[in-house]
């Protein structure tokens, strides 16, 4: 377990180093994810232990957003001045984009297969 956690962190580190050295404006963790994906294809799949550690982390993904999300406490003034425009823009654009993206993505799945895969 511990070894596999270290492996994931090493991919995170390498991803960060790569984007910093190349100066590409891209997040290090996503680069690390791409590298791990490449490694999985090269190796022909993950070990059971790696899957276990990864699943534990992903199952608690929502918790890991709390530190960054709480930064919102510092933006009371901004949200008060431009608040209405911001709220309208965020809600309208997010809902519209989910509709557009969802409808188009669903058009590719035949209903029979979709039914099979639904949880």
């Amino acid at each position: 377990m511990l070894l596999q956690l270290g492996v994931l962190m090493m991919f995170q580190f390498i991803g960060e180093v790569l984007v910093t050295l190349t100066g590409i404006p891209f997040p290090g963790p996503l680069c690390g994810m791409a590298l791990l994906l490449g490694y999985l294809y090269f190796r022909g799949g993950p070990s059971e232990e790696l899957t276990k550690v990864g699943t534990t982390l992903i199952d608690n993904l929502g918790l890991l957003f709390v530190p960054a999300g709480t930064a919102i406490v510092g933006y009371g003034a901004l949200l008060a001045s431009d608040g209405l425009a911001i709220a309208a823009a965020l809600v309208a654009s997010t809902v519209a984009a989910v509709i557009v993206s969802g409808v188009i993505a669903a058009s590719g799945a035949s209903p029979a297969r979709a039914g099979e895969l639904a949880p």
């Binding site: 997040p27 791990l36 993950p46």
Partner: peptide, 21 residues
């Protein structure tokens, strides 16, 4: 105080390669 959770967010993003694979 919770910086370690923020750090682990990066680790979890790396781990997203597993379900993608």
């Amino acid at each position: 105080g919770v910086a370690v959770l923020h750090y682990l967010l990066g680790t979890a993003v790396v781990a997203l390669a597993l379900p993608l694979y």
